[in-house]
Simulated scan of single mutants.
Amino acid sequence: MIKTLIFGNSGSGKSTLAKMLSEQNNLAHLDLDSIAWQPLTPEQSVPTRMPLTESESLIKSFLAQNSSWVIEGCYSDLLALLLDKAQEVIFLNLSVDDCIVNAKNRAWEPHKYESEEAQNANLDMLINWISEYPNRDDHFSQKSHLALFNRFSGKKEMRTSNK
């Protein structure tokens, strides 16, 4: 049984690593992006976070259905709900510059964007978001990820490179 949490900045390689581990070890894979946001409605132009209790319910459902898993994301509030269930954590603590390069080179993510053009139209905002990682003081910050990493007492690894 494998239960791994992967977290870090946007563009750090969380999804890529999680997909690789999932395929190599036949693990269920949960991208927290898929349960962190409410679906956009035609009236909305800005995504809204799903209430934490709703995301928590979806996490519990995923855990009930899967004994071995890899879960990835940048949401410290959601990751904290999983910390005592994980056997291993991997903190992808890459430089901002490396994350920006990864974001610019990422393939289209159809589960997040309706088209490659829509993804590319969001790139400037994403690069700005990535750049703020070391300075933010929220659930998405380097500070909150480091606190999670330090709090975890099991097997853990901090990677500063995708190599």
Rank of each mutant, 00 (worst) to 15 (best):
T4R: 06
N135F: 13
G11F: 02
K143E: 11
D77W: 06
R136C: 02
L81V: 04
K143V: 06
T4S: 11
A64V: 07
H145G: 00
A18W: 00
S22L: 13
R151V: 05
M125F: 14
Q142V: 07
N162D: 11
M1F: 13
Y113D: 07
E56G: 13
K14G: 02
A103V: 04
C99V: 09
S144L: 00
G11Q: 04
L83F: 07
A107Q: 10
I90A: 08
R49N: 07
S57D: 13
N120W: 13
A18E: 04
I2P: 00
W108S: 06
L94G: 01
E109D: 14
V96Y: 03
N120R: 15
N93L: 03
N128F: 12
N25T: 08
A118W: 05
Q24T: 11
D138G: 02
S55G: 09
T48S: 08
K14I: 05
S76W: 00
C99F: 09
L17Q: 01
D137L: 07
G13C: 08
C74I: 09
L126P: 00
A121W: 02
F62G: 03
T160G: 12
E88M: 06
A86S: 08
I90M: 09
N25M: 13
K104G: 04
L17K: 07
S68I: 10
N66M: 07
A118Q: 09
I59S: 11
M1Y: 14
V101K: 15
D98P: 00
V46W: 09
L27M: 09
G73Q: 02
N150Q: 12
W129A: 03
S61Q: 15
V70A: 04
E109G: 01
D77I: 06
Y113F: 14
P39Y: 11
D124L: 09
R106P: 00
G154K: 05
K155D: 10
E132I: 02
K112S: 13
R49C: 09
S76Q: 01
N93P: 00
S141G: 02
E116K: 06
E88G: 02
S15I: 07
A86N: 02
K85M: 10
V96Q: 06
Q44W: 13
I59V: 12
L123R: 03
N128G: 12
L94Q: 04
V70I: 04
T53G: 12
E23I: 09
M158R: 05
V89W: 04
D124F: 10
L17H: 02
Q87P: 01
E43C: 05
S131L: 06
S161F: 05
A28C: 00
E88T: 11
A147D: 05
R151M: 09
L83E: 01
V46F: 08
E157D: 10
S144R: 00
N25D: 15
A107H: 12
N135Y: 12
S67D: 15
G154Q: 11
V96L: 10
H111L: 14
E132D: 04
L81T: 02
K19Q: 14
L58A: 15
D31E: 15
D77Y: 06
H111A: 15
S131V: 05
N93H: 05
I100R: 03
T160W: 11
A80M: 08
R159W: 09
P39Q: 11
H29V: 06
E88V: 03
A86T: 01
S95N: 13
K85H: 14
